[in-house]
Design a binder for these strands. Structure first.
Length: 298
DNA sequence: TCCTTATGTACAA
DNA sequence: TGTACCTAAGGAC
């Protein structure tokens, strides 16, 4: 169930359990056997996310022969300043991938576990990723270079995205899923943020105003940070929650409250119109024709 | 037990 | 635009 918030949360969860100590790595499924063998016994130096991409950093353990490391060179990561090739495991969950954590002792893995990481206290099992590969620092940089700004990355802002959106004839719904333009937004946040800002998903990017885009960006910063904190997507404002409006809560396998995502043919919580759905670029789009009217001309 | 579906992406034609 | 890829859950039989 991965949009950007999931991946940033996974980076935090890896750091909490593994950062700074040696980790055992294995690939019970076998498809990542070579990569797992290369990082087995190394120290996880950090874990970070950009959009839906997860990067787990590894370096050799320090020994008593190693010189002490002093700031500012360690940057919290002595292994990267000692001339060793620092390695990364690049993970992309795709549509089906999952990462599950548990306390030690780890149970016997099933044969779908692509990568198991373990230390004396915890384990993590990766299943079904679209990508799990060992990469270099240069290869990692290339991935960052082809991704747009991420609402969850400190220091990123929406300006770079706006430069492309404001010149594009492509619909805003398609642009929001284009990871080169903005990284981390998936099908749920796309549908929900357009609803929250009353924007017709079919409007061309260049018909948005700067003010509208800035509001969308800052709303994504807010919503996705909440998503990291709660580990789920909730997009309904307090005054529109089931308790506030006296309607039954959503019964669904995703948990969070939403306005339009996967609510096709149901009534809009706010205006009562029937929520619509349509295929757009091989994904299901959801919107409310009442709250997100086409602005004419298009 | 089979079929469908899913919060994703890449590549071919 | 279509299709391939990866997994698991839920529903229909």
């Amino acid at each position: 169930m991965p949009e950007g918030h999931t991946i940033h949360r996974l980076a935090l969860d890896h750091r909490a359990r593994f950062e700074g100590g040696p980790v055992r790595a294995s690939s019970p499924q076998g498809k990542f056997a070579d990569g797992a063998a290369l990082v087995d016994g190394q120290v996880m130096t950090t874990a970070e996310a950009h959009g839906k991409h997860l990067f787990l950093g590894f370096g050799p353990p320090r020994t008593s022969d190693d010189p002490p490391v002093s700031p500012p060179f360690d940057r919290g990561d002595p292994h990267r300043s000692r001339g060793y090739p620092h390695r990364w495991i690049h993970v992309h969950l795709g549509l089906f991938g999952k990462l599950g954590f548990g306390p030690a002792p780890a149970p016997p893995p099933t044969d779908t576990v692509r990568l198991r990481l373990a230390n004396p206290a915890a384990y993590a099992d990766l299943r079904g990723p679209t990508t799990c590969a060992l990469i270099t620092e240069d290869e990692k940089r290339a991935i960052h270079d082809r991704l747009g700004p991420d609402p969850l990355r400190p220091g990123d802002d929406g300006t770079r995205a706006w430069q492309r959106i404001s010149r594009s004839r492509t619909t805003i719904a398609a642009l929001l899923l284009d990871q080169k333009i903005i990284a981390g937004v998936g099908n749920v946040y796309r549908a929900e943020v357009l609803f929250r800002h009353h924007i017709d998903p079919y409007r061309p990017g260049r018909d948005l105003t700067r003010t509208e885009w800035d509001a969308i960006w800052s709303d994504l910063v807010f919503l996705m940070a909440e998503g990291v904190r709660d580990n789920r997507i909730d997009t309904v404002r307090p005054e529109h929650l089931p308790e506030a409006m006296g309607r039954p809560p959503r019964v669904d396998d995703h948990g969070g409250e939403v306005y339009v995502y996967r609510r096709a043919h149901q009534d809009c919580h706010l205006c009562g119109s029937e929520i619509r759905t349509a295929g757009l670029a091989a994904r299901n789009l959801f919107w409310c024709p009442g709250c997100q009217p086409s602005t004419g001309g298009g």
